[in-house]
């Protein structure tokens, strides 16, 4: 605790300059809810903590043209309370509902949730179905990467150390069906044993004309599943079809994770949770 410094630059430029100078010995902190746990456990040793939570460039949730922009320092409470998200990214809004506890939602940020690269980050499946890209700033300028590219594995961030995630660009969607669900060991304050998000629309004939789905907390990094998206698109949804899609989803997931002891539950529960979540389509 005594050997770690704290800096809070006033502007993004100052922050990037500090990061450039102290690359490799600085950890970016926003809400701090993951960083503090790692510091206490001794698993994070860093010379500096760079506080980006008050940077204006990282704040705000807004529609810009055809894009939905969510500031990296938007807190989970802001996401929870956002009317814009409720309308344009409802699964993301729902992912904030059961995120940790209110105390944590009040400070934890979406940028932190993504950058921490926990396989069970609750916002990730919802970001994935909106094909979210992270906007990264460095002294060299801005670039965008798909959020799936940020983690190279559980808790392993693939981003260069001189970049800061400033915001996420989502494809907004106004859909009739959208949800985020997770399974935890209790009703609140639960780490996701499994999570998933979807959004869908049906045409006048009742066929699924749009379907996006992503699974969290089961694979090393959260993933969209294009196979079941294709399977269900154009179909009249009935229970048997959804059940079958859930089976394929489980099969695909187990192919990634391998058949470990914990997979016994996961394999069935993936199918079950998928059924439960998507059932309103029937």
């Amino acid at each position: 605790m005594m050997n770690t410094g704290y800096v809070r630059p006033r502007t993004l430029e100052d922050a990037l300059a500090f990061l450039a100078e102290n690359s490799g010995k600085t950890r970016i902190v926003a809400g701090g809810t993951d960083v503090m746990v790692d510091l206490r456990a001794g698993t994070l040793k860093t010379d500096y903590l760079l506080d980006v939570s008050r940077l204006q460039a990282l704040r705000g949730i807004e529609i810009i043209g055809n894009d939905l922009s969510v500031g990296a320092a938007a807190t989970l409470s802001e996401i929870y309370n956002s009317a814009i998200l409720e309308a344009h990214a409802p699964a993301l809004q729902k992912s904030a509902v059961n995120f940790a506890s209110k105390q944590i939602r009040n400070v934890a940020t979406i940028g932190g949730n993504v950058a921490h690269c926990s396989p069970c980050g609750d916002t990730l499946p919802a970001l994935a179905i909106h094909e979210a890209r992270a906007v990264l700033s460095s002294p060299a300028g801005e670039r965008q990467v798909p959020i799936e590219a940020i983690a190279s594995g559980p808790y392993m961030c693939a981003l260069p150390q001189n970049e800061i995630i400033t915001r996420f660009i989502l494809k907004p969607a106004t859909v009739a069906f959208a949800d985020f669900q997770k399974i935890g060991r209790r009703k609140e304050l639960a780490v996701a044993r499994m999570s998933m998000a979807y959004m869908a629309d049906k045409d006048a004939e009742g066929r699924i004309c749009f379907f996006r789905f992503a699974l969290g907390a089961c694979t090393p990094t959260p993933q969209r599943n294009h196979r079941i998206e294709a399977m269900l698109t154009g179909q009249i949804p009935d229970a048997a079809r959804i059940w079958e899609a859930g089976r394929v989803l489980a099969e695909d997931t187990i192919a990634v994770t391998g058949r470990r002891a914990s997979a016994v539950y996961k394999e069935s529960a993936i199918q079950g949770l998928f059924m439960r979540m998507v059932y309103p389509l029937v």
Binding site: G32, M36, V37, D51, S101, Q103, I104, V107, L189
Partner: peptide, 25 residues
């Protein structure tokens, strides 16, 4: 580690876990 809430304080009107907040903040 923010799992029990016994350290909850109010910062700018919002409940936070003080164990998970940097004092600098």
């Amino acid at each position: 580690i923010g799992e029990c809430g016994a350290c909850t304080i109010e910062v700018d009107g919002k409940a936070v876990n003080s164990c998970l907040m940097l004092a600098a903040q």
